[in-house]
């Protein structure tokens, strides 16, 4: 089904957004991804992915507060929609099922 497929970077961004909860916006996500995975992701790529996820209905966004650090510009804060949450659950279940087939002791 079109729109429900989630790519690798998308999954990463989605998970990070879920983790960051009310602080999920571009720069924070880049920093978090770097902190957890050590991967340098370009901010442009993150924006594209965020908007794609929003269009697919996994994320929703609102404009948050402005800080002077940002030159007075507001952040766009992303948060998971129910369908985003269920997508993450589904991915987790699929992966777990597969891991268990390789190694039944995997929990």
């Amino acid at each position: 089904m079109k729109g429900t497929f989630i790519g690798e970077l998308e999954e990463l961004v989605l998970l990070t957004s879920a983790f960051l909860a009310n602080e999920a916006y571009g720069v924070a996500i880049v920093a978090e991804i770097k902190a957890t995975t050590g991967r340098e992701v370009n901010i442009g790529a993150i924006h594209t992915v965020l908007h794609r996820l929003e269009r697919k209905g996994f994320l929703t966004s609102r404009l948050g507060g402005a800080t002077s650090e940002r030159g007075g510009r507001r952040k766009r804060i992303f948060s998971l929609t129910p369908s985003g949450e269920s997508a993450l659950t589904r991915i987790f279940q699929i992966r777990t099922r597969l891991y268990k087939k390789i190694q039944p002791t995997f929990s």
Binding site: Y25, G26, V27, V30, N42, I43, G44, H47, L63, A66, T67, E69, R70, G71, R73, R74, K75, R76
Partner: peptide
Amino acid sequence: EEVEGDLTEIFRSRVRERGSDHARRTFIFD
């Protein structure tokens, strides 16, 4: 707005970490 904001935020942190020349250069690429 968000894009400009994010880019500025990154730029500022780069200035702090690596100096403004580097920040200005990487900003162009960003």
